[in-house]
């Protein structure tokens, strides 16, 4: 038994119990939220069809391996699994593209392998950086300050490097 396996069941129970105590109409509100979630997920499908086709063609063409071979001096030095390189490239640019890349990766390597775990951590602890910057600066009706890109890139790079390092230190043991 792991502590991490307890968090989700306990959290689900706690949220629902707290809602009940505060007299929230659980069935009604839950379905309203769930409907939104379903709409979001189904709304992703058209985009995913295009992206998964592109990612699938890319990885099966051997291009990813060529790229990985090219970058192997850097990735080997960092201990970063070469299977996760295409994910690292697409992660800052497109959320659904990254989803497509992870899904593709899991069909080739087991999610509990080193590469599978690194991809999971990378996916969960970074965001679609460029999209976020674009949306926020559009909200302020300003061009994004170039220094924001530097700070965000520093954060992303830290995330890439630490994803394989934390897997090795905290999970593989």
């Amino acid at each position: 038994m792991r502590v991490t396996d307890m968090i989700v069941p306990l959290m689900i129970m706690f949220i629902l119990l707290y809602g009940l105590a505060r007299r929230v109409d659980l069935a009604e509100e839950f379905s309203a939220g769930a409907r939104e979630g379903l709409q979001t997920a189904f709304g992703l499908i058209p985009m995913l069809v295009l992206l998964m086709t592109a990612v699938g063609m890319f990885t099966s063409s051997g291009a990813a391996e060529m790229l990985a071979a090219l970058l192997s001096p850097v990735t080997e030095w960092l201990g970063f699994p070469k299977e996760c390189l295409d994910l690292a490239f697409i992660r800052p640019i497109s959320g659904s593209g990254a989803l497509a890349a992870v899904s593709r990766l899991f069909s080739r390597v087991h999610p509990d392998s080193f590469a599978g775990r690194t991809a999971s951590v990378l996916m969960a602890s970074t965001e679609t950086t460029f999209y976020t910057i674009a949306v926020y600066s559009a909200a302020q009706r300003k061009k994004p300050d170039s220094r924001i890109f530097i700070a965000a890139a520093a954060a992303d790079l830290t995330g890439f490097i630490l994803s394989s390092l934390t897997v090795r230190l905290l999970i593989q043991g």
Partner: peptide, 24 residues
């Protein structure tokens, strides 16, 4: 996604995710 693809412990990544994202 991990569970769907046969992970034995889909949430085992939690501590690593927390450390990685906090450091980033």
């Amino acid at each position: 996604l991990r569970a769907e693809n046969g992970s034995a412990a889909p949430f085992e990544i939690l501590p690593a995710v927390l450390v990685t994202s906090l450091s980033a």
